[in-house]
């Protein structure tokens, strides 16, 4: 029991920090660069993303193990997973608009962006590929979400500071953001070898 718990914890830490999706697996970069300009949007995105990540990891695990494996249609996993994510995002968009317009006003715009974030589709695919059980899938999903949120918040705070900096003209905007990410990734290599799964 304790060992299982430890494995869940390690999965969570590995997904959120050590193998951070942005800095070591290069996923979710589009949104990472797209919404890290301002802290406010970064935080909104982080919250929305983490919630959607966990739920869609759970949903796709259920569908994969109780529908796709029995029917032997696992080869359709790409289509089905993207369908699940898109449908879930669409549904929560509608529900949120009806139930909580205030929240929708704040976070709705991020919902629309999420379905083009590759992490959201990568996590169910990795869960299926690694054959994680339900709890493992959940903690992997949560770790990925938190890890992405961490990366996004760090990046937003750095970019807000860089707004004031006299960056050489050709490097303003995107190029310096990429170079910043390169240096953060370099710092993150210090974690290598921390947990080997």
């Amino acid at each position: 029991m304790e060992k299982e718990f430890l494995k869940l914890f390690e999965l969570f830490i590995a997904a959120s920090v050590i193998n951070n999706f942005v800095f070591t697996r290069f996923l979710g970069l589009c949104i990472f660069f797209g919404v890290s300009k301002k802290m406010e949007t970064a935080i909104g995105m982080s919250i929305t993303f983490t919630a959607v990540m966990v739920i869609s990891a759970a949903l796709s695990w259920i569908v994969f193990h109780y529908v796709m494996i029995p029917l032997e249609i696992t080869f359709l996993k790409i289509i089905i997973f993207i369908g699940i994510v898109a449908a879930f995002v669409q549904a929560s968009d509608t529900i949120m608009r009806k139930v909580s317009p205030g929240l929708y006003y704040k976070l709705g715009v991020y919902l629309a962006l999420i379905s083009t974030n590759c992490i959201i589709i990568a996590v169910p695919l990795i869960n299926a590929g690694e054959n994680y059980n339900f709890l493992e899938s959940l903690s992997f999903g949560l770790g990925s979400g938190i890890g992405f949120a961490l990366a996004l918040t760090i990046m937003a705070s750095i970019r807000e500071k860089l707004e004031l900096a006299d960056v050489p003209r050709p490097f303003r905007g995107m190029p310096i953001a990429w170079i910043t990410t390169a240096l953060i990734a370099l710092a993150f290599t210090g974690f290598s070898g921390l947990i080997t799964l």
Partner: peptide, 11 residues
């Protein structure tokens, strides 16, 4: 220097 020189570097 790419980050704007002295006073602006992050690292």
């Amino acid at each position: 220097q790419l980050f704007g020189g002295l006073g602006y570097n992050i690292f």
